[in-house]
Design a protein around this nucleic acid. Sequence first.
DNA 1: GTTTGACTTCAAGTTTACTTGAACTTGTAG
DNA 2: CTACAAGTTCAAGTAAACTTGAAGTCAAAC
Lengths: 143, 143
Amino acid sequence: MESVLTIGEIAKRSGVASSALRFYEEKGLIASERAGSGHRRYPRSTLRRIAFIVFAQRIGLSLDEIGEELAKLPIRRVPTRKDWSRLSSKWLKRIDEKIAEMERLRDGLTSCIGCGCLSFDNCQFANPGDRMAKNGPGPRFWL
Amino acid sequence: MESVLTIGEIAKRSGVASSALRFYEEKGLIASERAGSGHRRYPRSTLRRIAFIVFAQRIGLSLDEIGEELAKLPIRRVPTRKDWSRLSSKWLKRIDEKIAEMERLRDGLTSCIGCGCLSFDNCQFANPGDRMAKNGPGPRFWL
DNA sequence: GTTTGACTTCAAGTTTACTTGAACTTGTAG
DNA sequence: CTACAAGTTCAAGTAAACTTGAAGTCAAAC
């Protein structure tokens, strides 16, 4: 196992298809050197970059957002643990928001929909105080 | 306020654009009668149907899946609270799965990425026992 | 030395969930 | 009666995230 990897090796190890890797490269999310043949050669650190991309996608970031995040990593050297963990703090917040949203949805499902008040008109859960007036009407208030 | 609503009224009350409502109708998710003029007229119960659509989207169902779910509602009569709650049990499971996934991601972010082991090769968190061999390599194991 | 598999580029296609635009009709207020 | 808002259909456009196909090159095994 060499210290640089081909696109096929990266694909196999990361679980991300070669076509997707080329796409990410086109978008500037990852980078490669080229062998004399023109074939891509990736440094091992690319694997972690890809792990972060996959990870960030799962928590709901778009590739564009991920690109902005990755742009904060140092270019000149291989990122350290500290570089990575700086990025991840923002993501923790995002995860917690997602969890909170799902919990809100669960509450709505059991107490609001379950109780049959989903007609919006007179639902205490849907419209406590004046949430609806602030956010506009309709089911969007859960979000 | 009549017992049937125009598309504009439904749009305003549900927070879903008229164009989206026509799209949903085309997909068979909602239905309308027509006034003599050809304009759509929706029964009030459509509002709840739309609330369910919006809700289900948030927990990750595609419109196709939502269509399948809604197809389980009775056609001949306005669905009761019980009809709705039958549907929602499946969704509770989905929500719990989502929450569980997010918690897994959070753990990964703090213990695995935070500790710097995201290179997959020798991460105890990423690969306890033989999870990786079973699910294939790469960051996908979180999912 | 030839076959096979992995790689290259580039353009075009796919899916989901809508939105937008054009061209036209209906309903309502003054 | 005349605006003007709101409705109609149908085709085409949009955005994200890739995938697929064509046409060709490169590397490793036999």
